[in-house]
Design a protein around this nucleic acid. Structure first.
Lengths: 364, 364
DNA sequence: CTGTTAGCGCTTTCAT
DNA sequence: ATGAAAGCGCTAACAG
């Protein structure tokens, strides 16, 4: 029913092996023969059987990119950048029709679910993926971390390149090729310092989901700065009143909105609100405004990530810029083996404060 | 080196066939035996060989979701929704470890490149994908359309379910299971009518990339309304002065910014700017403001899609809401075969005008 | 440069 | 309910 390699071989009057060779372009074949084979392929509308091919070769050209939330540009930008390095797109001229020498990147949306993360890893393992890129913050559950480390270990052992992008190295390693970690802590610190320098002392914090590395690191940086300045909120999650200034929630606009309303209710004297990321910050802005307060005159608001829309917010959002495109591209290159891993396998990527107009000195 | 089915069988003291059966859970197996097999699988850390399995079974549980731009939430939202319907995530309790009965959704980023679109389709075809979902506007190049239709035809013939989501039916059909098309034309028309009703007569239009169905349909709706009202810009792209009020560009913030600047330069009397989508609209807003003009008092601005951030823009963006989540979910169900295709295979999805504060009557 | 020959690891009748 | 055996379509030595 479906056309196979053998059919093409018959039609071209050569052996299956030869057809395979021209398709893979990794072996010398006479120009005339190749010509004939290619024509036969065309005439028969032949399509390589991926599973058969991968089975025989014991490899595949699939690269998986795991993201926590595909609807969030934070991940989309990294994934897109990685993918450009992996599946260039237009086959190089003269490339064999079988493969372009390139790999095929597919993105897998875990939705933040640990089960799904593992499920996708298993799928990729089954497919003998050439590489796997894990993006964004990791869950801090010890059990899950262990499962992940074990899985990655096995993946790596099977020859799959594993790279982390915007995610800190695993506690137990897991045999990862490279980890490109964002300096979330430093970014959080610098942002808080910026606010402190402006004169803020009562700063609300709408954190991300608990048990996420990203959440924790940003918050730690924030508290470090506050503590150093002796401002409210620096004492950590203990039992102090400080906990009242920090609320956790998902990385959504809505979370920012609701948490900010609550923060303002708890402490009407708040002069600034820092959000887990830009999306959350947008919600925070909406809440602040809805309370009849002006930004930044009455309340300063800041985000994190510097997503494209942040500069267009009104007022333009103060935030911390993460070089998502660069990081994604680099992860892609690492996955392709076209870039050497950083020394020690770990690179920290700087986070830059973008002071814009949503933050200003507090009202006197 | 790597653990195979046979190893598991040996360890469990059964035949490979039996192991396969418990893994696939599609065949009666004694509870005790299954138990033993499962334990062996666990102890050996066995992972099914995907290629081998797909080869033997001549099917795979892969579902591909093609998107034009993964960094754009427009696609992310649809893809995410589709994927939830496809790869539920947590396996149903009691499900066999081999497969959850569920399929695995992977998203493929074409970046708007026709070659890549075809490349991914070929990949999916090779993998014997269970289904393919194509999202967003299609390229209108006749040659590419033909190639696509042919490819989809073949995919469908091979048993792959093909569904279009937010994309109009192909000119030549291509044997698609179902097409969920957004009413872009109607949305464009209603948006223009809204502006006309407010009293606007000179309306600039920052369109999307040429040769995209989405671009064309939205623009056609817009012009229909203008023509009916005898306003400038309704005459179509001909040679008239109207063309001056329409500029094409990519779906980016920057395009909106630059095109709006140009539009304002060409016709300082413009009282409204309609953008191809919300992202472009954000850029347009920035440009308007930079010219020292107020929104909406001096110039009204409108977008399209109603992405989550639009309601938080300042002023809140008037736009046309597309039910991306619902459409994506429905596409996912169609791909899974858990929902019946619409009559005729085509469903038009309504686009709703969201009149907010970025549009108002023009200054007198 | 090209053909021959074995499998790759799994699924699936067909028996039992 | 389980086992035996015959491939699925391709690649990779190994000859020639």
């Amino acid at each position: 029913m479906t056309v196979t390699l053998a059919d093409v071989a018959a039609r071209a009057g050569v052996s299956p092996a030869t057809v395979s060779r021209v398709l893979n372009g990794n072996y010398p074949v006479a120009a005339a023969t190749r010509e004939r084979v290619l024509r036969a392929v065309d005439e028969l509308d032949y399509v390589l059987n991926g599973p058969a091919s991968s089975l025989a070769a014991a490899t595949s050209d699939l690269v998986g990119i795991l993201v926590n939330d595909i609807a969030d540009p934070f991940f989309g930008i990294m994934a897109g950048a990685a993918q450009s390095e992996i599946g260039g797109g237009q086959d190089a001229p003269g490339a064999a029709p079988g493969r372009g020498g390139q790999k095929l990147a597919v993105v897998c949306n875990t939705g933040g679910s640990p089960e799904r993360e593992l499920t996708y890893l298993t799928l990729l393992q089954r497919q003998r993926a050439a590489a796997v890129i894990l993006t964004g913050g990791a869950l801090e559950d010890p059990e899950h971390s262990a499962a992940m480390a074990a899985k990655l270990e096995r993946l790596a052992a099977a020859g799959t390149r594993v790279v982390l992008c915007g995610r800190p190295p695993l506690p137990r390693g897991g045999d990862v090729l490279a980890a490109l970690a964002f300096d979330n802590r430093g970014g959080g610190r610098r942002l808080a310092e910026h606010l402190l320098a402006l004169g803020h002392r009562r700063i609300g914090y709408v954190a991300g989901p608990v048990e996420r590395t990203t959440t924790r690191h940003r918050l730690e940086g924030h508290r470090e700065a506050l503590r150093a300045a002796g401002a409210a909120g620096g004492e950590g999650g203990g039992g102090g009143a400080d906990g009242l200034l920090t609320l956790h929630g998902p990385y959504t606009r809505r979370s920012g909105y609701e948490a900010t309303l609550e923060l303002l209710r708890r402490d009407p004297g708040l002069t600034a609100v820092v959000a887990a990321n830009d999306t959350v910050a947008l919600g925070a802005c909406a809440a602040v405004r809805e309370q009849g307060l002006r930004i930044p005159q009455d309340v300063s608001v800041a985000g994190f990530d510097d997503l494209p829309f942040s500069v267009d917010a009104v007022p333009a959002l103060t935030t911390v810029r993460l070089p998502l495109t660069e990081a994604g591209a680099r992860a892609g290159r690492l996955a392709m083996g076209t870039e050497a891993p950083p020394p020690g396998g770990i690179a920290t990527i700087a986070a830059e404060l973008m002071a814009r107009s949503s933050t200003a000195p507090p009202r006197a």
